[in-house]
Design a protein around this nucleic acid. Structure first.
Lengths: 294, 294
DNA sequence: GAAATCTGTATCTTTTATAGGACAGATAGA
DNA sequence: TCTATCTGTCCTATAAAAGATACAGATTTC
């Protein structure tokens, strides 16, 4: 229960903007292709031309489209997102090796009581003390993931706040002698709430990839609960599958992998955004701070 | 370029509604817990109480919360979503075995020219003819996925429109003697555009899980391009991971799996929604139809 | 060169989401 | 019982998003 709804923007226009933006970025609308005319868009989307116009204005100021009076509106070149790093199996360990600068911002750090849901997932007693931390990961200075982790207090005290801002949590855990044995991941999707929207530098209603991961040690007790939110334009899950087995019992075997997606250079144009509301962080009793990136 | 933006709803209210809904459904706010008071919510989220009220009204009409004058607003019991079926590796083949009734609705069927993006992904010539089909999968009568598939024409003609409405595409392909060799999947997130929103029976701005899959035959040529959109409350990707290897070279090995999520029964209450706009399907030149479920 | 179809621009109106109060009735705790 | 704190209701005011319309200038097409 910490979040806030704000922003007063032309809504229909903004929606249309997000939609078109997506279609362009995803390559659904080819580069240099001509968009439907404003009246057409207006009709198709059941809004007035003024609204369409507002959406296109935004796209134009993002440098994503080019408007040619008399002829039409066109998609600017080089818009399609391209996956860049394919990072096998786990984490971002390889990113560094690949020469990308990653960073972490510690946003919040506190100790809380386990909610029933958390306790159940971690297989702990309800109400048990947990260390809660909120971090944002950056790649080349750009935020791409928002991580909320919960770790049993007895484990959490073995490392410092500063450690969190510089070292992957799993590594910290294993340093303390704990052995991660198995884990469970669930991947879904959510809307960006205002605080994560601010942290990830996305619009408030934007779609985010979400991953919930619970790591267990051999004894079966949970040692880490991670709730991660990713910017889908900067991070996505990739997997290569191979067809194995004979007919009748054919299967796909997965070689799971994740990958970062190259941020679109064009989007940095007008992205010195106007609206960065005076959002109040740490609404509850979190002792927050913003350590420098690593 | 077929989509429409519509809907005139209280926006901030709606956003707040979605947010709270999520927090409740995800168990972030425990069952039977007391929500912050209306004035509190108003302050935290920087909106007026009227707006908070509208959001809560919606939640209440969904049966998700219970309001007790004088004391507060409480989360109704049995809200947390529970995963039900864990379907290993590929597809939904196991669902049937598990006794769930699945169905397919064929929404559109046509032949189109490959866009550059499609051609590249499928490793075909740009402009090549493709069979395009749009389907919606149902589980127990409830839509959970929206599938847009593209298949090279020469392959597509080997089965009928009716086949599509009754048989999984991959099976159809392999029936024709084609051998799927490898595939690539990318999982991300998107916003629901009006047409898919209608098809999946979700709100228009809702977050959707998206998966893009390209299947190749041994020769390396693409034989299927699938763009799938999932309702995250009904479908999500699950994976169990095991920690393998010694320290220094430890890895997570994945046993990929997906799972369906039990739909929340409470939501069927007022879900005879008012607003189901007279959306026009098949905006382009698609010959559509709505075959009965299988 | 005329017609059709674009985008650019400007003005005016309608609609409505949101804010901000005031107040009654219910409930819980001191 | 008194007080503080809820939700339930009703009202008005304001800001602004969205719609409607008309027209100028560019471009393409025939």
């Amino acid at each position: 229960m910490t979040r806030s709804v704000a922003t007063a923007e032309p809504m229909k226009a903004h929606r249309l903007y997000l939609l078109l933006r997506e279609q362009i970025l995803s390559g659904e609308v080819p580069d240099s292709a001509k968009l439907p005319s404003e009246p057409q868009l207006a009709q198709e989307h059941r809004v007035s031309r003024v609204t369409v116009r507002r959406a296109l204005d935004k796209l134009a100021s993002d440098g994503m489209i080019e408007r040619r009076p008399g002829s039409g509106t066109f998609v600017s070149g080089g818009q399609t997102r391209m996956p860049v790093v394919a990072d096998l199996a786990n984490a971002l360990t390889h990113l560094v090796e690949m020469g990308r600068k990653t960073g972490v911002r510690l946003i919040a750090f506190s100790y809380v009581n386990a909610t029933p849901a958390l306790a159940e997932e971690l297989k702990l007693e309800p109400g048990e003390r947990l260390q809660r931390s909120v971090r944002v990961r950056l790649i080349d200075g750009q935020p791409f993931s928002y991580l909320v982790t919960h770790v049993p207090e007895r484990i959490g005290i073995s490392y410092s706040e500063a450690d969190l801002a510089s070292t992957p949590l799993l590594e910290l855990l294993e340093r303390t002698g704990l052995v991660a044995d198995k884990a469970q991941q669930i991947i879904g999707a959510t809307l960006a709430s205002p605080d994560v929207a601010a942290a990830l530098d996305v619009e408030i209603g934007a779609a985010l990839l979400s991953m919930t991961r619970v790591v267990y040690e051999a004894s079966g007790r949970g040692i880490e609960h991670l709730q991660a939110l990713y910017r889908p334009d900067r991070y996505s899950f990739h997997m290569e599958l191979a067809r194995t087995g004979d007919r009748g019992a054919r299967r796909w075997t997965a070689a799971d992998s994740r990958s970062l997606t190259e941020a679109n250079e064009n989007n940095n144009k007008k992205n010195a955004r106007e609206k960065r509301p005076p959002l109040k962080r740490r609404t509850t009793h979190e002792t927050g701070r913003d350590p420098s990136e690593t």
